[in-house]
Simulated assay, not measured.
Amino acid sequence: MANSSVYDFAARDIKGNEKQMADYKGQVLLIVNTASKCGFTPQFEGLQSLHKELGGQGLEVLGFPCNQFMNQDPADDDAISQFCSLNYGVDFPMFSKVDVNGDNAHPLFQFLKGEAKGLLGSEKVKWNFTKFLVNRDGKVVGRYPPTTKPEDIKADIKKLL
């Protein structure tokens, strides 16, 4: 059976624990591939702001560190977690580092890319801080490029809450 929603997947959280995406059933998800040493890294602030403002209404921001773009997240999970917490006050769920492209791409990202294609129909994630918006039914409803700031997605998120 083909996967039909994000709830069909699991991923390791940044502490190494297996986490079922089904645990987020009924919530709106903003799934982002992140990096600690990227020009877009300050977007952690905007993501945390969305998490704080809309978390109580059913939004869950999920961060997935990725080191596939010019080695911009070379640290281990523990160091990444500390960086995000200390520099940006991140307390939304962060996951263990993943690949988003290529043969070793995490199955969740393979699914997200297939459901919401990028520019010109490309499935490939172009850079860090590509954002996927998922509705309360686990369906991918939007894909935003790294240049789209988290606050610019707020209206789309509110429509789903």
Rank of each mutant, 00 (worst) to 15 (best):
A2D: 07
S4P: 01
S4M: 07
V6Y: 12
V6Q: 12
Y7E: 04
F9I: 01
A10D: 02
A11G: 08
R12N: 04
I14D: 01
G16N: 03
G16L: 02
G16P: 03
N17M: 05
N17E: 14
E18G: 00
D23L: 05
V28I: 14
L30H: 08
L30W: 08
L30E: 04
C38H: 12
G39C: 08
F40M: 07
F40S: 08
F40I: 03
Q43T: 14
L47A: 12
S49V: 07
L50I: 08
H51P: 05
H51R: 06
H51T: 10
K52G: 06
L54Q: 12
G56S: 15
L59A: 15
E60M: 15
L62H: 04
G63V: 12
G63D: 07
P65M: 03
C66R: 05
N67E: 02
Q68Y: 06
N71M: 11
N71T: 11
D73W: 02
A75P: 00
D76N: 10
D78W: 00
D78F: 00
D78S: 07
A79D: 10
I80T: 11
I80F: 01
Q82E: 14
F83Y: 07
S85N: 01
S85A: 07
N87Q: 09
Y88L: 00
G89Q: 01
G89W: 00
V90H: 06
D91Y: 02
F92R: 05
M94K: 04
M94G: 03
F95V: 00
F95S: 04
K97Q: 04
V98A: 11
V100E: 08
V100T: 03
N101V: 05
D103F: 00
A105T: 05
F109K: 14
F111W: 10
F111K: 10
K113C: 04
G114F: 06
G114E: 12
E115N: 09
E115Y: 02
G118E: 09
L119H: 06
K126R: 14
N128M: 04
T130A: 09
T130L: 06
D137Q: 15
V140H: 06
V140D: 02
V140Q: 04
V141W: 08
Y144A: 10
P145G: 10
P145F: 09
T147M: 08
K149A: 15
K149Q: 14
P150A: 14
D152M: 10
K158A: 15
K158G: 01
K158L: 13
K158R: 15
K159D: 05
K159W: 00
L160N: 04
